[in-house]
């Protein structure tokens, strides 16, 4: 059953968007290798949802239904996925470079004694092998890497690969995969603030920096974000000033984001900030200093006072 495998990502029994992105990317790789896409689904009560993966190019689903796999744990997923992979011996294994995939990656590669290319932004096939492109040095350089182990494992950066509908229903095979001993267990799950969109998943981000001047002024960005269904991010200066939480920081030592639209308000565009948002599809800079480095990276530069422009923009949208 060689071929291209993906490890699906689900939460509370529902596939996450990254699963469709990964399936669509896997389909392209499989087509070039003359192979099929098999999806490994680890979860509980997901029988009906599994066939739907066919829409995104998955030919076959290996579904392990186990209450112990309902919630992601490093141990449960590594034990179950590694056993299935050893058995099926795929050539390529792909999953999302979400928080889950980042956690799983190193452990799974070590267990299978193979290599992994994490957080990839492009995949190609050359001479029957996958070539994975991944930004390193915070996006200052892009590396094309070849994985000489087997399987070739790669995790894919969220929001980069397009979701492509190409197929119909997938064949679903129930398999048993033992979650084994779970040494690091989930003791508690706390939901984030109601309606808060995670930065790494947002398609639009409105971000504020030191130019926001104080914590309360972020209300202006919240209003704009509300209209755009956007998440609100921040520069490290805004986080260090205590205006926003650490989880909102965009940049080299914060989150790396790739939204369709990134609106930077009162952010100068330091190299460490650009590292986190430089690969956004469209960048807007609202900064009153015409010489601010952010203006050299932006697609649309608004050289003006953000306190005048942001409220007007909220009205216009």
């Amino acid at each position: 059953m060689a071929g291209v495998w993906i490890i699906a990502e689900q939460r509370d029994g529902e596939f996450r968007k990254i699963t469709y992105e990964v399936a669509s990317a896997a389909k392209k790789v499989a087509d070039e290798l003359g192979a099929e896409v098999t999806a490994v689904v680890l979860g509980s009560g997901m029988q009906d949802a599994c066939a739907e993966l066919g829409k995104y190019g998955v030919a076959k689903v290996l579904y392990a239904d186990d209450a112990a796999l309902a919630t992601y744990t490093t141990d449960g997923y590594t034990n179950a996925a590694a056993a299935l992979i050893k058995d099926g011996a795929p050539d390529v294994v792909l999953f999302g470079a979400s928080t889950q995939g980042k956690d799983l990656g190193g452990r799974l590669a070590a267990r299978l004694d193979t290599g992994i290319a994490v957080d990839c932004t492009a995949l190609a096939v050359e001479g029957g092998k996958m070539v994975a492109t991944r930004p390193i040095y915070a996006g200052k350089v892009y590396a094309d890497v070849i994985i000489n182990g087997s399987p070739q494992i790669a995790s894919l950066r969220p929001n980069v690969f397009d979701v492509v509908e190409s197929g119909g229903e997938a064949a679903v095979e129930a398999v048993s995969a033992d979650a084994g001993e779970i040494k690091a267990a989930v003791a508690e799950v706390q939901a984030s603030e109601e309606g808060k969109i995670d930065l790494t998943e947002a398609t639009v981000i409105v971000s504020g920096g030191r130019g926001m001047k104080e914590a309360d002024n972020f209300a202006l960005l919240e209003e704009l974000a509300g209209k755009l269904n956007a998440a609100v991010g921040a520069s490290r200066s805004a986080v260090d000033a205590g205006w926003r939480s650490h989880t909102d920081q965009v940049g080299q030592t914060g989150k790396v984001v790739t939204p369709n639209l990134y609106i930077a308000c009162g952010i100068s565009g330091a190299i460490q900030h650009l590292a986190g948002m430089g690969s956004s599809k469209v960048i807007v800079a609202i900064n009153k200093d015409p010489d601010a480095p952010i203006h050299t990276k932006a697609d649309y530069c608004v050289i003006s006072d953000l306190f005048d422009v942001v409220p007007e923009l909220t009205k216009e949208i």
Partner: peptide
């Protein structure tokens, strides 16, 4: 296991508009 085939500069962005 990993072999770097090539390193490349980041993809170019089109120049921005004011």
């Amino acid at each position: 296991f990993i072999e770097i085939a090539t390193l490349n500069p980041p993809p170019d962005r089109a120049p921005g508009k004011t």
